[in-house]
Design a protein around this nucleic acid. Structure first.
Lengths: 328, 328
DNA sequence: AATTAGCAATTGTTTTAAGCGAGTGCTAGG
DNA sequence: CCTAGCACTCGCTTAAAACAATTGCTAATT
């Protein structure tokens, strides 16, 4: 258990380091706590032994360790009131009534990324829970049609289907069947329904049922795997002073280009959670703050990713503010 | 007019520098041309006075200037036969019959970017010249419908339209009108046709014509401005030894993130053209090799962007090979 | 007239040394 | 328990020196 003064010191070290990216010396602190630098030094030895702070070399100031950041976030950080400026910028988006909610979120995160100089991730509401609203077919020419799938939430997916030697009537028949029997089914369950309820029927009525079945199966499959993803401020990492060597930059940028990896930051929890350094799977030199949001049946992830010395309270406030406004 | 030997020397300098990214010394060259280094030095002075090569400082080897690269590309470069490996990798894409041509191009460029370690750009076939095939409306709930626009080439665009207090019948009526009167029109001309032919009619028959007209106008407008764009291997720049300082990297990556700027590399010419350094608008430290491709009525741009010391002949061969295969 | 050998001169790079400054740890005294 | 004082450590800056690469020029050679 840390003493009051130890907590104060740790708090000062973390915040000082976050602001100035320079190791914090005992002298820096004693001014704020009016006691001598030697006293601070003694306490710092204790804090170091407990693993909350670190030295770069024998005679450097102290830097927060991962454990130090963790403690700061869990126990020391004070919620930061939103600044008027931050609020104003976001308000302009919220008040634009004509935008769909998804776009509001995406735009807001872009703003937040610009405001903070961190990178923002929006992992789209998976359409998995959407229900099938309608299937449409538009003939293109003798050999191809466009199949269009619409969900009840307004997601649209389309796929060109090559139908050599299949009569338009047969295609229409199939579409009709799907519209009669599968509408209202959640996208995630359409595949199996297609297989067990539609396939047996079309195989009776439709000559080239196999090719048609395959095509639609494909189309639905594509749909349910397609999740939107937005990344804003990828380059912001280059602005952070701790990312000053080309190798590290290459490393991070490469990771940010890796869709699969980015998708894996998906949030499971609707609280705002902080993952510092090795606590996240993405990269041990970054912190990820993320949360799950939900609108009606859809849910997605919003996340901020930046250096470990992130302005934690500011980012948390911003995300909280955004989440609160999503609700309305 | 350069002498045979001067051309040889310039060629060697360019190719040597492309390969090793190090200034080329007279000694490097004299081995290949069996004459003494002093002779080479004399020739190099001439080449430098003519502006084909440069020194970094009084006693460094020579580096090709922009003019040098230009001369090399125009007169000295020998076409490089495709290596078996390069060919093989691309063949696997070409032979995948089930892919639409657009995807083949996109995938091939990704391969080329991996093969060469440069960045590949595919600027999608503008849908401007497509003709309207059909407009579909799918009602979602009382207040919104999804409008879907399909072109004769199979491009699909959709937009959610909020229609408070508009009866479904009126929407359907409008759609019917569009389908009857506008189908077959090139997308680029739909807007004006909508304004002068449809608007007068619906304003008679449809109560809330203004909101409907606006919605469709918007949808078509979005469509015609939307061009697909693919960028592969953005990070490859980080691998190039000449991009070794953080500022330059930030610069380039920021530019590659700028959609508008990337779009502006659009090729006007169906020849393969090389734009070295300040010859392109993108960045004076890069070379862009680009060409326009055409499939049926659609056309787009494929481009490779990399350092000025690009493997010109290899890239040109690869693009040529790809273009040739697009034709089939 | 063209080529070449030889050499001084230039410049960047690496190495070494010295000095500075920021900061710590420890000791001894308040 | 706190603090003043001081020796010590270590990174950073600067200066000087030694090195390596390469050129330009001159004079000799072919």
């Amino acid at each position: 258990m840390l003493s009051k003064r130890q907590k104060d010191i740790l708090k000062i070290i973390v915040e000082h380091y976050i602001k100035l990216v320079r190791p914090v010396s005992s002298n820096n602190i004693c001014k704020l706590l009016n006691c001598s630098s030697a006293t601070i030094r003694n306490e710092m030895v204790t804090l170091e032994n407990l693993g909350f702070i670190e030295k770069m070399h024998t005679s450097s100031g102290r830097v927060p360790s991962e454990k130090g950041y963790r403690y700061y976030v869990d126990y020391l950080m004070e919620p930061k009131a939103m600044t008027g400026e931050d609020m104003l910028k976001l308000q302009t988006i919220f008040h634009n009534q004509s935008l769909p909610v998804n776009d509001v979120i995406a735009k807001s995160m872009t703003i937040i990324s610009e405001l903070t100089n961190y990178t923002a991730i929006v992992l789209g509401s998976s359409a998995q829970e959407n229900r099938l609203q309608q299937v449409e077919i538009v003939p293109l020419d003798k050999e191809a049609v466009i199949a269009i799938v619409i969900t009840d939430k307004g997601h649209v997916e389309h796929k060109r289907i090559e139908v050599p030697n299949v009569s338009l009537d047969e295609v229409k028949k199939t579409v009709e069947l799907i519209n009669n029997l599968v509408v209202g089914t959640p996208i995630s369950k359409v595949s199996s329904k297609l297989e067990f309820e539609i396939k047996p029927i079309i195989s009776k009525y439709v000559k080239q049922h196999e090719i048609l079945y395959q095509a639609f199966y494909q189309a639905f499959n594509d749909f349910s795997h397609k999740n939107s993803m937005q990344l804003s401020g990828k380059v912001n990492f280059l602005k952070q002073p701790e990312f000053d060597n080309v190798d590290k930059i290459r490393d991070i940028i490469t990771k940010l280009e890796d869709d699969e990896l980015v998708r894996s930051v998906k949030a499971e929890d609707s609280d705002i959670k902080v993952y510092i350094g090795s606590e996240n799977e993405f990269d041990e030199d970054v912190t990820i703050i993320k949360t799950k949001y939900t609108i009606d049946d859809e849910s997605g992830t919003i996340a901020i990713i930046g250096p470990k010395r992130m302005e934690y309270n500011r980012v948390v406030s911003l995300l909280e503010y955004l989440k609160e406004n999503i609700k309305r």
